[in-house]
Computed example of a mutant assay.
Amino acid sequence: MATFGTVFMPEMALTTFADSNWSKPEIVTSDSINLHPGAHVLHYASTCFEGLKAFKHEDGSVNIFRMDRNIARMAQSSRLLHLPTIDEPMLEAMIVDMVRRYLDEIPLPPGSMYIRPTHLGTEASIGKAAAPSASSMLYVLLSPVGNYFAGGDKCLRLLLEQDTSRCAAHMGMVKSGGNYASALQPILKARAEVQADQVLFCPNGDVQETGAANFLLIDGDEIITKALDSTFLHGITRDSILTIARDMGMKVSERELSIDELLERASKPGTEAALSGTAAVLAPVGTLIHNGKEHTIGSGDVGSTTLKLREALNAIQWGKAEDTRGWLQRV
């Protein structure tokens, strides 16, 4: 199987916003887009995106997971970036139409069809550093993906970074490419210097998120994770896992978590940690690196609660457990 996110369907749905109106969505080739070299997005990073999945069930039906939440978050990101307001029903129709177009290309679980809606500012103006783009482009790209854990579960190594943030505090809840770009330098440095897989950003000792995923600490029957605010991404997988944990009778604590408390709890037998996101659902964390010292989380191996929560969410996504909350939309 090719590397995650490198194979694309040959067509995508695309619409543009100009003169206060969205164009009728079209099906176009997905190998290129037409942008003026002075496009706002290329100079002032006016762009946001989403990531969601469609799953093929054993009965042959195809279901998109929590599409309403992804569309709502994209609308929020667009507002916060002052991009043109997206037409949410139109975007839903674009997503559904594209998934239907490529039903036969959707892999069976644990594979899926990854869906990437993208919104970017297109106005040709290099004089609008402090003004939004009056025009934009919105498209929906599809990428069939395989099993994220095809090589087996690997416990991740995280470097705790307390001197810098992943991105500007008021931008954390925006799913924008600029946030990922700003995290890249510390991540690459951590990989080179301490062989970390990711950086867990903890500005002033406040445990927030990694460069590309939310962080969850599991201490017995309690999950501890930072309460939602503007500084970090409001993950839909995070919300799904926390909901399932509550249904299982676990205590969910959304609150401040300091580095000191994290390291103290991590040393206890049975403690687990994981990163939540669309691609992996839950990826286990085995080691925290802080001030040149490595701290093993619990046994350092994949935790049973991490596996239980991930399997429970996968069972809903894959149609093997009842969808009692209406998270799946059949197409």
Results as ranks from 00 to 15, higher is better:
Q208N: 11
E294M: 12
L257Q: 03
L257A: 03
S258N: 10
T305F: 02
K293A: 12
S258L: 00
T278Y: 04
P203R: 05
D247H: 13
H295Y: 15
E256C: 07
M248D: 13
S253A: 15
E261P: 08
D229K: 14
A213K: 02
P284S: 08
S230Q: 15
G211H: 08
I224V: 09
D239T: 06
D247M: 05
L275E: 12
D247G: 00
Q208D: 09
D260Y: 10
G211A: 01
A280I: 02
A227T: 10
I223Y: 01
H234W: 07
G277P: 09
P269K: 06
C202R: 10
T225S: 09
T271P: 00
A279T: 04
D229T: 15
G205I: 15
T237R: 01
E209V: 01
T306G: 06
E222N: 00
C202S: 11
N214M: 05
H295W: 10
K268D: 12
R246M: 05
D239I: 07
R238M: 02
F215Q: 00
T306P: 08
A227M: 13
S276M: 00
N214S: 06
I241A: 07
A280R: 04
D206L: 13
I297Q: 00
D260F: 05
D301Q: 15
A280M: 04
Q208C: 12
C202L: 11
S253I: 07
K293R: 07
K226Y: 05
M248E: 06
D229F: 09
L282T: 02
V252N: 09
T287R: 14
D229M: 10
I244P: 01
E256G: 10
K293F: 08
V281P: 06
G249S: 12
